[in-house]
């Protein structure tokens, strides 16, 4: 009575289709977060206070306000300035921006772990700052922080149900619609919870694999972090 398997099979296709939207939002958001995070991290390390302090302030501001409000902000406030975005795009931008600020802290830890000698050697070799970053610093700074970035990928994935608040037809929104159509919330909600649980556990296991692989390949017995 409480759990109706026929109903489960009936709603399963719709939920699976919606889960594709969830995965899309996660991946797009994370690509945006990874890129923005690196930009924030580098700007924050800038020697000019006029660049580093406003960046730090912006990052702290985004980090300490709720991502739901930021989603609303992008979706409702941007149109006032003439930028009308579809719900999905607005949601991905807001999630990417929010997690970009988290990622920037991760990158910063990676960048600060590069020994000073590497910078000094690049100056001695007369490399431009751009070349130094691209060829010397970034290739050394990124691999050790990949597991930490992976954790934020999982966290971002778990935030995607927020997109239901601006009516993106992702998993949560679909479950809510199915629930209200049939007046049965038990199955859709539980299935959504189960889906997130399974995906998070799989992703966490994947991150552990990557971490072990990196520890082997980096040959860094002292621990990369």
């Amino acid at each position: 009575m409480l759990w109706d398997w026929n109903y489960v099979w009936e709603i399963m296709p719709a939920l699976l289709r919606a889960s594709i939207v969830t995965v899309q939002a996660t991946l797009l958001g994370f690509v945006l977060a990874a890129v923005l995070g690196l930009i924030f991290a580098i700007l924050r390390m800038s020697r000019s206070n006029w660049i580093s302090i406003p960046t730090a302030g912006f990052v702290e501001f985004i980090r300490s306000t709720p991502v739901l409000i930021q989603i609303f902000f992008v979706f409702f406030v941007f149109p006032e300035f003439g930028i009308v975005l579809p719900a999905m795009v607005a949601g991905v931008i807001a999630l990417g921006l929010h997690y970009g600020t988290y990622c920037s802290e991760v990158y910063r830890a990676g960048l600060e772990n590069i020994p000073r000698g590497q910078w000094e050697a690049s100056i001695a070799l007369n490399l431009s700052p751009y070349i130094t970053f691209r060829d010397i610093i970034i290739p050394q700074a990124i691999p050790p922080v990949i597991p930490a970035l992976g954790n934020y990928l999982v966290a971002l994935f778990k935030e995607t149900p927020l997109l239901s608040a601006i009516a993106v037809l992702e998993l949560m929104q679909t479950a809510k619609i199915l629930g209200s159509e049939n007046f049965r919330y038990v199955e859709p909600m539980t299935l959504v919870g189960g889906f997130f649980l399974v995906m998070s556990i799989v992703a966490a296991a994947g991150i552990r694999q990557v971490e072990a692989y990196l520890n082997r390949t980096l040959r860094n017995p002292g621990g990369a972090r």
């Binding site: 409480l2 778990k158 935030e159 995607t160 149900p161 927020l162 239901s164 949560m172 479950a175 809510k176 629930g179 919330y185 038990v186 909600m189 539980t190 959504v192 919870g193 997130f196 649980l197 998070s200 556990i201 966490a204």
Partner: peptide
């Protein structure tokens, strides 16, 4: 379970499913 699923899903689950 609580670390592996979204806060929003948990909230909705308690809100919509517990009454059943």
């Amino acid at each position: 379970v609580f670390r592996g699923t979204s806060a929003l899903v948990q909230l909705f689950w308690l809100f919509f499913v517990l009454p059943h």
